[in-house]
Amino acid sequence: MEEILNINSISKRYGKVKALNNVSLQINRGEIYGILGPNGSGKTTTLGVILGVLNADSGSYCWNGKTPSKNDRKNIGSLLETPNFYPYLTARQNLSIACEVKEVVQSEVDRVLNVVDLINRADSKFKTFSLGMKQRLAIASALLGNPETLVLDEPTNGLDPQGIAEIRTIILDLAKNGKTIIMASHILDEVEKTCTHVAVLKLGNLLTYGPIQSVLNNQEQVLVVSENLDLLKLTLAQIDGVSNIKQIKDKVSLILAKGKDISYLNSALFDKGIAVSEIGVQDSDLEANFLELIK
């Protein structure tokens, strides 16, 4: 596995707010890495540091194993927080400037405008664009030069459902072509549908990270029903690998540790003399897990 980005215990505070607390992360080629967290959790700060616009208080990062330089950034397509363009210039003029900075051929302008479906508004001024169009232009700008690595901060921000679907398709297409994509989002659904890996941030702390399935779905939620729910709860508490016992209406929900399955639970209960009238795995609920993680 080829390492694209290495973030090494980065911390950053704004006055009293600790925006990032000792965050370390490694991203390899071909991964679609979601940085997931609620608003204010430090996603943009993380991306700002690795894109050279924010100075970290401590820690370091490197792209492709080298000390950071402006040339790394020329080969990364980035969108940070908001679409940033000259309002009095047209879409085409704005992208043309971005091409100059990135040292990319000017013919890229029309190509990327086509990709985001803005070609018919190419000569309209940026200030006349709707929020969604501005966001598309920002994505277009990130695509200039067809970079191997993309850093996208809330890429579907401000888009309508159709726009969201289109951008998702673009991202998945890029992923298919082996690009490495780092994508910040506060929307679980978005990360779940596009990413291969995820890092969960909360209040500047990296809670967990890894392949998406193992992070968001590593525990199975099981629902059990029996005649005496109080006795059931007491008994469950004694069984190895059972946690988070909660009563939900007439059922008891619990989390089963990795490697334990329903038949294990069923026989453990049977051994302790509990007759189970109903037992089943709850449909994997990533959202519940995410909410649990960031609680």
Partner: peptide
Amino acid sequence: RQQVINGH
């Protein structure tokens, strides 16, 4: 900010 991100 954008131009720094883009490689200046």
